[in-house]
Nucleic acid binder design. Sequence first.
DNA 1: ACGGCGGCTATACGTGGGTATAGTCTGCTA
DNA 2: TAGCAGACTATACCCACGTATAGCCGCCGT
Lengths: 219, 219
Amino acid sequence: MAAVPDPQDLTARARIREAALRHFGEEGFERATIRAIAETADVSPGLVRHHFGSKDGLREACDEQLVKLLRHVEREAHTYRAGDLGRIHRARAELAPYWPYMARALAEGRAAPLFDEMVRLSELWLEELDASSDAEPLADRRSRAVVATAMSLSIVVLRQHVSRALGVEMPGADADLLISKAMFDFYSRPLIGPEDAARLAAALDRLGGGASPRSDPPA
Amino acid sequence: MAAVPDPQDLTARARIREAALRHFGEEGFERATIRAIAETADVSPGLVRHHFGSKDGLREACDEQLVKLLRHVEREAHTYRAGDLGRIHRARAELAPYWPYMARALAEGRAAPLFDEMVRLSELWLEELDASSDAEPLADRRSRAVVATAMSLSIVVLRQHVSRALGVEMPGADADLLISKAMFDFYSRPLIGPEDAARLAAALDRLGGGASPRSDPPA
DNA sequence: ACGGCGGCTATACGTGGGTATAGTCTGCTA
DNA sequence: TAGCAGACTATACCCACGTATAGCCGCCGT
């Protein structure tokens, strides 16, 4: 349950995997070398191959480990009621060391189970929410869940920019405070009125099967 | 003004740069090779070095080009009023071919000017918005601008997951429609009531300089 | 006591790919 | 016509790194 779960008495296999998660996260898959990973794990390069077959094999093991970790954290904090901030807090703290790896994996389009799992959670969350609201949603629940997931992950994936732009270190309490408040603000204060939203949605429908890309409003 | 601005009668230097933007975007910086880029640009590998000095030099040129492009698009669509969807539409279409490169650059923490520029725009946008609203924001404007920027970029950076999870191709009209509607929904319908938000913000303040990371609510 | 197996190391091989150098061709100025 | 400059090519170098092989050592079952 330690944030970094591994003192130094771990099986070599696990040490290698943890070292890889760090190296891949910090340097990226291509720049990271088996030799460096082995050195960090305090084993010979050959052993890496022995256990994981190849560099790609090692990465797959890392991905799996990441999903395993997410599920663990999830299980531990499945009380997702907004009230229990402390619980979520601790859960996130456990993930933080793996942010760099996570961010890279997601940005490269890997770690799909992780993303999908979060979408699932978002859908559950929206389901509750829809039940307790009377206004009609503009989009189907799944779309909203996917977009919400992407948005929440953006903070991790773009943490270097967020950190720099806010002038705070990013796994860090200051950042948590600023970001959480900003998000609560967005969650609680509508940026556009319902009539404007309906008008925009209608305009979109009119553009319909129209032309090429679009993704999101300016901000 | 063409979406991909370059037929095939461009200066070799420009052809190389465009080829690099594509290769770096699709394969990543490390996996992309100077030789392949040269071939795409229909020049010899040596010429790449001649013009850009090194692979890193080439990447820097790409980053600069990206910022130049953003400013161009911005200038062209500086009428950021939500009404003129068509204008924004065309502007975005011009950027779309560079999404893969953009996404990678941002995820790796590069292309800071691009991010910062978007933060600036968000701040302007929020400034207007704050003026026309009476409710007190929970966070300072800059924090909100940074978070909003990260959120809107998340769609591009995580487009592979978004695309997969929605089952639509991602530079594409279908995706635009779904995503835009979902975003308008979030922008127009508050997810939590103001009293809950205030309570949560207060709770955060109480945790205060507390413990380690936090980033965002579950969804 | 022993045979075998799995964790582990040392060493070597092969090559992809960035970089460096030398040389060619075209066009311009005088 | 000479001669220089810069765009461009061909070729070679070199090393980092993934992969492969062969072997050592300690443990366990019998």
